[in-house]
Design a protein around this nucleic acid. Sequence first.
DNA 1: GCTATAAATAGACAACCATCTATAAACCAA
DNA 2: TTGGTTTATAGATGGTTGTCTATTTATAGC
Lengths: 110, 110
Amino acid sequence: MNKNLLTLADCAPSSTAEPMARAKAEDISALLKAVADPTRLQILALIAKADLQESCACDLTGPLGLSQPTISHHLKKLAEVELVEKQRRGTWIWYSLNKTRWSQIAQLFA
Amino acid sequence: MNKNLLTLADCAPSSTAEPMARAKAEDISALLKAVADPTRLQILALIAKADLQESCACDLTGPLGLSQPTISHHLKKLAEVELVEKQRRGTWIWYSLNKTRWSQIAQLFA
DNA sequence: GCTATAAATAGACAACCATCTATAAACCAA
DNA sequence: TTGGTTTATAGATGGTTGTCTATTTATAGC
């Protein structure tokens, strides 16, 4: 996933050649699906604006008006594609953005 | 949608303030959902690599192994969020990428 | 008008997903 | 160990969506 979508298309020799490999399309799709949810976009924005750019899950339920398991579910989805990272400090688990992964998405559309 | 997601977060004064407006999150989500599908990513790549960077729907069914209505369905989704544009020339309808819209996505993750 | 081709629509169906409640697991402090 | 707090998991449910077949609409040529 080191080339963007448009240049990826150039890998094939002609306009009637094979399409982008399905497996690669599914990889990119999985990453984008994780971001393409309104609640997860709000979660990412909340983390980004928090002090030290990290939040614990319990700080997200209130502003978003969602149950704790629902927030946990979304954070798991974001962690699965490595868009957020978790770090346990005592009772709390702190979530932060993986900016490398973030900019990889930007590269896809550059 | 003229600021990216991370700076959008800065609009709020403190870490306990309101989250990103739900309506805005849903707008961005709708755009990203349109791209976050493996078949639609393949369609976009096929259009990008085609001669003159445009394809008619009938050129997509073969390489992707999908029915004509399914391709039509995906092209409609992409057109709804203005990621592709359509132009009728006789019997065929030619689809091309809206690169302005494309780069707007890149801006979100810049 | 008739026929052929391209694209869109309608309707059906299976798979996926966001959310909830209820419960369990992990951790800290007495 | 007991109790309180935070996070994760299990299971259920309603809504969304990708795909298909069948049909309709639009255009071109005879």
